[in-house]
């Protein structure tokens, strides 16, 4: 007992001394900070906080690898100068994608075909590269959603699920709102986490604070039904990938990341480089044949209903006439916007 007490006493004394030494260091550091601050204040101009200077003169490639771009997204955002239109939420970034994380490709990788590169890039924010660049063995391809956080297979995003629910279960919801209230809220919470849209956040609060089935609740639900499609543009927190096992995308991405890094580490003219490049690209089709593969062909490359889309949305995506036009642009034909809703002088 005495030994234990004396041991505790010794530990206490050592602790006290150690603490005293730490205090000495803290005091000296405070003195250094004080002098540095005072000298800076009087002999140098006042620092201007970064939030006043984060103005986007140009957006460079690094901005594509960020979830947010300071100055462009966020509360006091400003549009990139030459772009003029405010951006609001930045495009979805995929930190798992081996093709881009390796450094071989940019997150918006399509640069060659001037006519359709932006259309192709649009898809890169919500499709994995393999969806278009892996040879198709059977139609429809086995596809699902993978989380952009974990790279693992996941359920359809809250946005897709809720759009489907509100479309297909309209009558049951109208009859028995209480039974769906929690499910709607849960899906909406998922959407808000990804989207951060203030109006969606407001609708979430409104639904949370209203009685299911009340006139206000129904009104909010109607507004939500109108609002959700506006966010079906890559604000998912997930991407469409084709896979057999839940971790296929993660595994392939890790492999591509490592192989890509080996490629970049080799000298430009080294045979190793060519070998690695061939090894990766030989398994891929470098360019997709047609936009209509997904948007127009029957059967389409992807079964949108199986991905969780509502029948209406799936039908729209399958028969998407815009895609047919983009296809015709790819084939070198110009396309004029119609004038039926326009005055033409």
């Amino acid at each position: 007992m005495d030994k234990a007490r004396s041991a505790m006493g010794a530990i206490g004394r050592v602790g006290k001394r150690l603490y005293a030494f730490i205090l000495v260091l803290v005091l000296l550091y405070v003195f250094y900070l004080t002098v540095a601050y005072l000298v800076m204040m009087v002999f140098y101009p006042s620092p201007v906080p970064a939030r006043l200077l984060e103005w986007p003169g140009h957006l460079d490639a690094s901005s594509l690898r960020k979830a947010d771009v300071p100055g462009v997204t966020g509360p006091a955002a400003r549009a990139p100068f030459a772009h003029y239109h405010q951006v609001g939420q930045w495009m979805q970034f995929d930190p798992i994608n081996g093709c881009t994380i390796s450094g071989c490709h940019e997150p918006l990788p399509h640069t060659r075909s001037a006519n359709v590169r932006a259309f192709a890039n649009l898809h890169a924010t919500f499709l994995t590269c393999q969806m278009c660049h892996e040879p198709v063995k059977a139609r429809p391809v086995k596809a699902g959603w993978v989380s952009t956080q974990t790279g693992l297979a996941t359920d359809a995003p809250g946005l897709v699920q809720l759009m489907r629910l509100l479309e297909t279960e309209r009558e049951p919801i109208a009859r028995n709102p209480a039974a769906y209230h929690e499910q709607i809220l849960s899906l909406l919470a998922q959407i808000v986490t990804v989207s951060k849209d203030p109006l969606l956040q407001y609708l979430q609060i409104e639904i949370t604070t209203t009685v299911p089935g009340s006139p206000v609740w129904r009104d909010v639900l109607a507004r939500l039904t109108d609002e959700l499609p506006l966010h079906a543009r890559g604000e998912y927190g997930a991407k469409i990938a084709h896979f057999e096992a839940p971790d296929d995308y993660l595994r392939v991405s890790q492999h591509l990341r490592e192989t890509g890094r080996t490629f970049l580490a080799a000298a430009p003219e080294a045979p190793e480089r060519k070998r690695v490049q061939d090894q990766i690209h030989s398994q891929m089709q470098l360019s997709l044949d047609r936009c209509t593969a997904c948007h127009g062909d029957s059967p389409p490359l992807v079964d949108f209903t199986a991905l969780g889309y509502s029948p209406k949305r799936a039908a729209f995506l399958t028969s998407m006439p815009t895609a047919r036009q983009v296809q015709s642009i790819r084939e070198g034909r110009q396309f004029y916007l119609p004038s039926i809703t326009e005055e033409r002088r």
Binding site: Q92, L108, R117, A118, G234
Partner: peptide, 11 residues
């Protein structure tokens, strides 16, 4: 219809 996608961009 097209311009609402953040990814409609190029580098």
């Amino acid at each position: 219809t097209c311009h609402r996608y953040q990814g409609l961009a190029r580098l």
